[in-house]
């Protein structure tokens, strides 16, 4: 039996209602207090369910975590591209200075070595980001499991309610969604 089945919220409600019904048939005055307490349990369960729904946890699993993962992937891609460009420029400078016996050539060679060393950040930061992406995936999986356990099956994602400037400020776009300068120029020209 899965945890979700074991703790199914509607099943608990059914059981509590069943107990209340049986107790209601009884004439024992003390049982009235038990019924009241059971109704209290029902209220707590209903309130818990409403609290969960109010938090809109599906936003976390369907929007925020996947969005954050995509942003981190974009960081890795962009830093790799920048590092490759830096490396290529260094290689050109190194070749230009190779075999020359003047102090400037030696300075270029020494400084290029320092740039190579610094570029190794891309590997280490990439590994750190990969770890964070893994943690985000784990959080998403655990939240989904918790939602399954409490019977939360609303998968509608909340809409962006921001207005004005706040709605327009979203930071860098993902490469797949971003407009190129050429597209922007065409759009601007279309107003002329």
């Amino acid at each position: 039996m899965s945890a979700a089945n074991q703790y199914d919220r509607s099943k608990v409600v059914t059981i509590v209602n069943s107990v209340i019904a049986k107790m209601a048939d009884s004439t024992d005055a003390n049982q009235e207090a038990v019924i009241k307490e059971l109704r209290g349990v029902l209220d707590v369960i209903q309130a818990f369910r409403q609290d969960i729904a109010g938090l809109r946890p599906q936003d976390l699993t369907a929007k925020h975590v996947p969005g954050a993962t995509d942003e981190l992937d974009a960081v890795v891609t962009a830093t790799k591209q920048a590092t490759d460009t830096i490396m290529s420029s260094c290689e050109v400078m190194e070749k230009a200075a190779a075999g020359k016996a003047d102090p400037l050539a030696q300075t270029v060679s020494d400084e290029v070595t320092k740039i190579y060393e610094a570029c190794s950040f891309q590997d280490v930061t990439g590994q750190r980001i990969k770890k964070v992406v893994g943690v985000l995936g784990e959080i998403q999986s655990k939240v989904e499991h918790l939602l399954e356990i409490v019977g939360h099956n609303d998968d509608t994602v909340s809409q962006d309610t921001r207005t004005g400037d706040a709605r327009l400020l979203n930071g860098p776009q993902m490469p797949a969604n971003a407009m190129s300068q050429e597209d922007i120029d065409k759009l601007l020209a279309s107003f002329d």
């Binding site: 790799k80 590092t83 490759d84 490396m87 260094c90 290689e91 190194e94 060679s109 070595t113 190579y116 060393e117 570029c119 190794s120 891309q122 590997d123 990439g126």
Partner: peptide
């Protein structure tokens, strides 16, 4: 040997310099 092409390139260049 490295899965990051950039790191291979860095090590290659440093080895060349050595």
């Amino acid at each position: 040997v490295d899965d990051y092409a950039t790191m291979r390139r860095i090590i290659r260049n440093l080895l060349n310099q050595i």
